[in-house]
């Protein structure tokens, strides 16, 4: 029963959502908007669940003094500081429970939450992604030395697109006469993006969408039940 009823809920909700698309009359016409709002609210709680779970896992590591527990403690403290700043003094657009607190904002130059976001979070985030540039370069080197026909295609397309979108790449073929303009690197890059790449992306979209439709049907009919988890 603990599994059967949720399966029935999934089935009926799915059927209602699909039916409402084809029946433009009340109550079906308003059901979709209502359900989407419910979906948003429950998703909000799901995000909170994820955060609480993160605190639980990290706290446990600190409690049992697992390897590198000091860093997990710092992670928990920074989480707490960010949440406290957000709740007490609010965000850029919203006031916190202590109001906008103009004096503190004047002293910091912005609200504490925004100050932390601008001066710590944003720097950490962009540096973390910038760091990936080095790893992408080494991964590309490993991929390209395989020297198969497919890897060569991949490399040529990557190089053409990169050069075609930069000034130096444009200058490489700027000397070409008007009759050979189709070999101008930005034009070649545009051609690669507009036709072969577009074809592959389109096919991936169509295939993935067919897969999503199939998976959705399996879920609604109760064939796919893994989302309910284990147990009774």
């Amino acid at each position: 029963m603990k599994r059967f009823l949720p399966l029935m809920v999934t089935f009926f909700i799915g059927i209602i959502v699909i039916s409402s698309e084809f029946i433009p009359h009340k109550p079906f016409s308003s059901i979709n908007a209502g359900l989407e709002n419910w979906f948003l609210i429950i998703s909000g709680f799901a995000i909170l669940l994820g955060q609480i779970s993160l605190i639980k896992v990290n706290s446990n590591k600190v409690y049992i003094k697992a390897e590198n527990w000091q860093y997990y403690l710092i992670g928990l403290i920074s989480f707490g500081v960010m949440v406290l700043c957000g709740i007490l003094w609010g965000t850029q657009d919203a006031n916190g429970i202590l109001g906008s607190h103009v004096d503190l904002s004047k002293w910091l130059g912005s609200k504490p939450f925004v100050y932390l976001f601008d001066n710590v979070y944003q720097h950490l985030s962009s540096t973390m992604f910038a760091l990936l540039a080095f790893f992408i370069a080494s991964a590309a080197y490993r991929a390209f030395i395989m020297r198969s026909f497919e890897s060569n295609l991949l490399m040529i397309a990557a190089v053409v697109v990169m050069l075609g979108r930069t000034t130096i790449g444009t200058s490489f073929t700027a000397w070409l006469p008007q009759g050979w303009r189709f070999l101008h690197l930005p034009d070649v890059a545009n051609f690669v993006m507009n036709y072969p790449t577009n074809a592959a992306q389109r096919a991936i979209m169509i295939s993935a969408a067919l897969g999503i439709v199939g998976s959705s049907l399996r879920i609604l009919l109760g064939i796919e039940r893994s989302y309910l988890g284990g147990g009774d």
């Binding site: 949720p6 399966l7 809920v9 999934t10 089935f11 009926f12 909700i13 799915g14 059927i15 209602i16 959502v17 699909i18 359900l35 989407e36 419910w38 979906f39 429950i42 998703s43 799901a46 998976s215 959705s216 879920i219 609604l220 989302y227 309910l228």
Partner: peptide
């Protein structure tokens, strides 16, 4: 179940 049913539909 509600979230999955809505998103599947």
């Amino acid at each position: 179940a509600l979230v999955i049913g809505t998103s599947a539909g």
